[in-house]
Structures are given as structure tokens and as C-alpha cells.
């Protein structure tokens, strides 16, 4: 039994693929555990989905190959929340509004605010409270 890993993904579904039960097949046919953080279907019938998939590296790869057959773009580098480091002043207002500690003070001397994407559950609390508009949603 090979080791299971978890990957964060953001999927973009073009108009023609929005009504297909792709995630169902990821679970049923590819043995993946999915944890959806946020999903949205636009009035143009395009879809966005931010999720975690857990499974063996092989299963995840096969699952992604399956997803790719549908014209769905897979973004493994960034999720639905974007923190603009140029805009952030490290004030720390977001800290108490981030339930998982994804936004946290890494160094108690410099008090730099750091964003750990892996911990983000996309609650969007930071977007609501950041005075500098440093946090944004990709969708």
C-alpha cells in the first residue's frame, strides 16, 4: 500500500463541462477522498472549485488525467485565495479572523505576517477584514 498524500487544487470548468459529475467519478473510480472548500457556478455557466484531494500519488495522477479529458483546467500552484505580498503591510488585523492560522506571525521579532496556503480553508474572512485590500478571491 503506497502512502497517501493530499493535494490542494483549483479547478476551472468551462461552460460545456459544468453539468458533468466529475467529482463523483474522482471518488468512485479513482479512490480519492475529496474535501471541497468552495465552489461557484457563474451566470455564464462556468464553474470554479477549490478542493483538497487525498489518495495515493498514482490515484491522484490518474484522477487528474481523467479530469483533463473534460477541458477542465487544473491549477495546483494557487488556490482561490490570493494574498498580495506587495499590498500587505503586516499589520496583523487578519490574524484573529483566520480560523486555521493560515495567516500568522512567523517571527515574533519582526512580526512579519506570513500566509501558509496549505492551511487555508477559503473562509474568506481575510478578504472581509483586510484594510489594505491585500487579500482577494480568484473567483
Amino acid at each position: 500500500m503506497s502512502q497517501t498524500i493530499t493535494k490542494k487544487l483549483m479547478l476551472f470548468f468551462p461552460k460545456c463541462e459544468c453539468e458533468k459529475p466529475i467529482i463523483y467519478h474522482l471518488v468512485k473510480d479513482h479512490n480519492l477522498i475529496v474535501n471541497v472548500f468552495r465552489a461557484k457556478v457563474t451566470p455564464e455557466e462556468e464553474g470554479y472549485l477549490a478542493l483538497d484531494v487525498t489518495g495515493t500519488e498514482e490515484d491522484i495522477e490518474k484522477g487528474m488525467d481523467f479530469v483533463k479529458t473534460f477541458n477542465v483546467s487544473i491549477n495546483t500552484t494557487g488556490k482561490g485565495i490570493i494574498v498580495d505580498e506587495e499590498q500587505c503591510t503586516h499589520c496583523g488585523h487578519c490574524i484573529t479572523h483566520c480560523p486555521t492560522g493560515a495567516l500568522h506571525i512567523a517571527d515574533m521579532v519582526t512580526r512579519e505576517v506570513v500566509y501558509s496556503e496549505a492551511k487555508c480553508i477559503e473562509c474568506m474572512g481575510c478578504i472581509r477584514v483586510c484594510p489594505y485590500n491585500a487579500c482577494a478571491s480568484a473567483f
Binding site: H90, C91, G92, H93, I95, H97, E112, V113
Partner: peptide, 21 residues
């Protein structure tokens, strides 16, 4: 420290002034 205690209750602390800057 990110936490204060007021009247026996622990409260999470955030800041508006940037010490970093």
C-alpha cells in the same frame, strides 16, 4: 503574544498598527 486575559476570559488579539513596517 496574540492573547490577553480580561476579567478571566482569554481574548485573541490582532493589531492595526504594523510593527513590521
Amino acid at each position: 503574544t496574540g492573547e490577553i486575559e480580561v476579567e478571566g476570559k482569554k481574548i485573541a488579539v490582532g493589531s492595526l498598527s504594523s510593527y513590521y513596517k
